[in-house]
């Protein structure tokens, strides 16, 4: 077998798909790509309303540090109340199979 040095592997060829300067909204059905302005310390997702605190690993590499707690907690509680309402008749099993 001759090893082809020049040939790019699958992993190497995927390198061009890397994106920079963006983060993704963490809401599963949203996953919107968000581009925080340089140095911004938080960002709100225009699609689903969740808010995140931003940390910059380097000037081109933002990351989500965590949620803005009170905003996301409110969104979560509203959703939880809805979920509970629709499932109020059902009770979850507890304690063993």
């Amino acid at each position: 077998m001759a090893i082809d040095t020049e040939k790019m592997s699958g992993a190497e060829s995927l390198r061009k798909t890397r994106t920079y300067g963006k983060v993704r909204c963490h809401n599963p059905s949203c996953m919107e790509r968000l581009q925080p302005p340089a140095g911004a310390d938080h960002i709100k997702c225009p699609t689903c309303g969740m808010e995140y605190r931003i940390f910059w690993v380097n000037p081109n590499l933002p990351r989500i540090r965590g949620p803005v707690w009170d905003v996301n907690r409110k969104l979560a509680e509203a959703k939880l109340a809805n979920t509970n309402k629709s499932k109020s008749k059902k009770t979850a099993k507890k304690g063993g199979e």
């Binding site: 963490h26 809401n27 599963p28 059905s29 949203c30 689903c48 309303g49 969740m50 996301n72 969104l75 979560a76 959703k79 939880l80 979920t83 499932k87 979850a92």
Partner: peptide, 11 residues
């Protein structure tokens, strides 16, 4: 069900 997290993770 999950009680916290992103909106669509709830439940």
């Amino acid at each position: 069900p999950c009680r916290r997290g992103a909106i669509d993770v709830i439940g």
